[in-house]
Design a protein around this nucleic acid. Structure first.
Lengths: 341, 341
DNA sequence: CTGAAAGCGCTTACAG
DNA sequence: CTGAAAGCGCTTACAG
């Protein structure tokens, strides 16, 4: 711990006034209690001299606010979430708010534990990427009127704020592009889950195929989200044997590992099979592939900025009934990997 | 905020005892004050029923401890640091400690501000990746006896705990490999900085070249750490014109962008030029390159686990004089990109 | 414009 | 084994 911090009392003694006055002078803000200009200056200069640092614990105890928010993500070492975390951090820092971060690894028990820990710490609110089988935790928060904003995924039947992607549109854009290029045998590759965003991506694919009268071509492959590379080594050759012409992947990871497999088995993209991935851009390093990869672009920063802005308002007004759902729009970045050759 | 939390007082009233007794029963731990077994059970069960959550602010105010640590990194959206952050988070969570995270972007002012904010929040200690021009901040912390552990980079003249890589050895391993393959014209590519780890990597390269009697072949290219891809588009062709046979990169980012440029200008790795990068493995997605990339592997998780373990001890003993410097060992993962063809 | 005092929720010597 | 009370550092109605 820092050796003997100066307190408001030390300053009061040094200046020869009451602690109350010091507090007013230092916070001022809502000029409710007027203090003479001169006194404010004096107190502030002494505070600076004595290197005064307010004690947050005491402040929180009195005010009930901590100026801290809890951010619970799937996994902070995943690029997508790390980028979002970074945006939230920047916004928060700007607003004088501190961020506590935790990763659930899609494990409901870890998730619930994190929520409790952060609740104990007295966070003013949450930004959460909910994992499977944890509606009850979110519901509990909502009922307790804790300010919460969900990102990336949400629950349609819960009155809770959220910032999500229009995931159905995302895969529709992908089908549009491939159809436009002349592909018909288009397969959607995803994994087993009930998480809303992934499910929506599948729905978008199916609906879009219908739209083009390709009911008979609708085909979805699902793997378990474990040992993805190995799973793909089995799946991808089968897919090609089926005569599939183009692949749409529901996540970045699935796409990357599949591209590796395609290279391993000597299949060319897009000559042997066309590909559309999720999430590209510099940070995702498709750069290294021999061909440019088409992908659905999510406005990553917006997840962070929007979520923080919605949460701030919830905290400020204290009215958690007045929830807000923000839907972000995907963009298709069409490159070589989805071209008909 | 959570609607009306139960306090120790509520429990005391419900059970019909003093708040002191409730506190003892709930914390127990150091059985200093003995409470009857039966009473402990009763109080705990009531606490559970009433869904008691201790108020951290009050606890901190009394104890002076927050069970929170501040982790200040270069940039949480950078894979390397995100992985480290994740490890720290896991270790901390295991120990009931919460983590606050901040990114400096190598900006000394941001860095100093983060330190102050976290200090205000009353963190029990810091894990820090120090940026350039910020020795004074670290020195201030050390002098104030705040528990601090530096990672990735350190200051030789400061009595402070640290967990770093043996960076000189890292580049020596790279030279060893390339020399062994028969390469002589080996260039080290890095960027302008005074950060210890990067400087050490250069030193290791130079020393190693000397060791092999290649004084005359020692050559280092430095760019500014901005617009790296563009800078590389200029640099790499020049390097090749100089007849360089092999490249060692001081960071992962430099390597990636250079590989992209090499592909762009139609140069083959390792046929036209051999390459050794920093940091590979799945998470860094060299996978997508047409050839496997040789790289210097840092034991990333260990940065996190060791740093946390050292910090924990510092916090526990309170003796910050007893600092500890941990040096981790690099490993060379030799693959296709460094082979003589 | 300024001060005295209560109280946020908890822990911990001090009594009994 | 248990209770009464002080105090951590701050804010904020309430007086003056």
């Amino acid at each position: 711990m820092v050796a003997k911090r100066t307190t408001i009392k030390d300053i009061a003694e040094a200046v020869g006034v009451s602690t109350a006055l010091v507090s007013f002078a230092l916070n001022d803000g809502n000029k409710k209690y007027r203090v003479s200009e001169e006194m404010v200056r004096k107190i502030r200069s002494v505070a600076r001299e004595m290197n005064y640092q307010p004690n947050s614990a005491a402040k929180s105890l009195r005010s009930g606010r901590t100026d801290t928010i809890g951010v619970i993500l799937s996994d902070i070492s995943n690029r997508f979430f790390a980028d979002i975390a970074r945006c939230i951090e920047d916004e928060a820092s700007e607003a004088g708010i501190t961020v506590m971060i935790g990763s659930t690894d899609e494990n409901p028990r870890k998730f619930e534990r994190l929520v409790d820990v952060f609740l104990n710490k007295g966070v003013d609110g949450f930004i959460i990427v909910p994992c499977e089988k944890s509606v009850h935790v979110i519901r509990r928060l909502v009922e307790a009127k804790v300010p919460v904003v969900l990102i990336d995924r949400t629950y349609a039947d819960l009155d809770v704020s959220s910032v999500t992607l229009n995931n159905r549109k995302a895969t529709m854009l992908a089908v549009d592009e491939l159809y436009g290029q002349g592909f018909r045998k288009i397969r959607f590759i995803t994994y087993h889950t009930t998480i809303s965003n992934i499910v929506d991506r599948e729905t978008g694919y199916v609906e879009s195929m219908r739209k083009y009268g390709l009911e008979d071509e609708i085909s979805v492959s699902k793997i378990k989200y474990e040992n993805i590379l190995e799973n793909m080594r089995k799946l991808i050759p089968q897919v090609l044997e089926d005569g599939v012409e183009a692949l749409i992947f529901s996540t970045n990871r699935l796409a990357i590992d599949s591209l590796v497999v395609l290279r391993e088995i000597g299949k060319k993209v897009p000559e042997d099979v066309a590909v559309i991935a999720f999430d590209g851009s510099e940070t995702f390093a498709f750069d290294l592939y021999y061909t440019t990869v088409s992908y659905i672009k999510q406005p990553i920063e917006k997840f962070g900025t929007e979520a923080f802005s919605v949460l701030s308002k919830l905290i400020k007004t204290g009215d958690t009934r007045d929830y807000k759902t923000v839907v972000l729009h995907p963009e298709l970045i069409a490159q070589e990997s989805s071209k008909k050759k």
